[in-house]
Amino acid sequence: MTSTPSTQGLRSWLLSEEPSSRRQARYASWYKGWLTFRSNTLAMFGLAVLAFLIFAAIFAPILASHDPFAQDLGQRLLAPGDNGHLLGTDSLGRDLYSRLLFGARISIYIVLLVVMVAPLVGLIVGTVSGYAGGWVDVLLMRVTDIFLAFPRLILALAFVAALGAGIENAVLAISLTAWPPYARIARAETLTIRNSDYIHAIRLQGAGPLRIVTRHIWPLCISSLVIRVTLDMAGIILTAAGLGFLGLGAQPPSPEWGAMISEGRKYILDYWWVATIPGIAIFAISLAFNLLGDGLRDVLDPKEGDA
């Protein structure tokens, strides 16, 4: 290993046992987490795949070889590689490669929207329920139970049917069905944390419930939620794809991966690639999220102490 003196200095600054400022302490703990994460090869692979997908989504207009919506019936159902279509064309002669790139945008858009809604709702409901106890707890947990009682896809279908088909409504429906497990996790964590001495100690400093929940309990719940969300991400993408496949998510001609499989389904025996290629993309992103979640668990799980 050849590292220049300045990176050496940065490294020792980050690994210092005696940080001299808030900033250094925070960066150092991040850096140590990163070192743990980096030693997990599979998680790094997952991160690389995701980085690649995000890159593809951002630069889709530049990377795409064709207009993803341009139909050319003369060029329909071409095999991968034919006539300059890298991954072939679909039943309307649209370039699959370009549609895949733009589809990545939709998938990431879905992921981001769900991530902003479901875990946040779950965190708030779970921690408030766990910390308050009493009738607040009973009420919130029964509501959670009601949501948990339905299979997720069925409930999402019902919501979409009521709200109308479309990508935003699909995201909303998925979020509404995804939060209860997070609430359960957050509540279980809160119940153990609320009786710990450090929470007692801050209560004895006169801190109110709002401060305790947001500043002391949330930071400890968030790590397990992040892990869980990352691991669930595959399921969320699959649900979104499932809704697309059933025609209740993204509407044609939008290049959503689930919808693309749905379109390719009719030709699957003669023109396998039309359904397989978006299928591989869904598989790749799901796997990447799962691997990433595993790696994050190693970093964030506080039970893993230093040897």
Binding site: R22, A25, S196, D197, Y198, H200, A201, I202, L204, Q205, G206, A207, R215, H216, P219, L220, P302
Partner: peptide
């Protein structure tokens, strides 16, 4: 006027907070 020190020093400090954060929050609250 009244403060308490707990038995288990491994359980009485928030695992994600630096010494600085613990002390400054206590002082801030008072």
């Amino acid at each position: 006027k009244v403060q308490m020190v707990f038995q288990d020093p491994y359980a009485s400090l928030h695992p994600r907070q630096t010494v600085d954060r613990v002390l400054s929050e206590a002082m801030g609250l008072h």
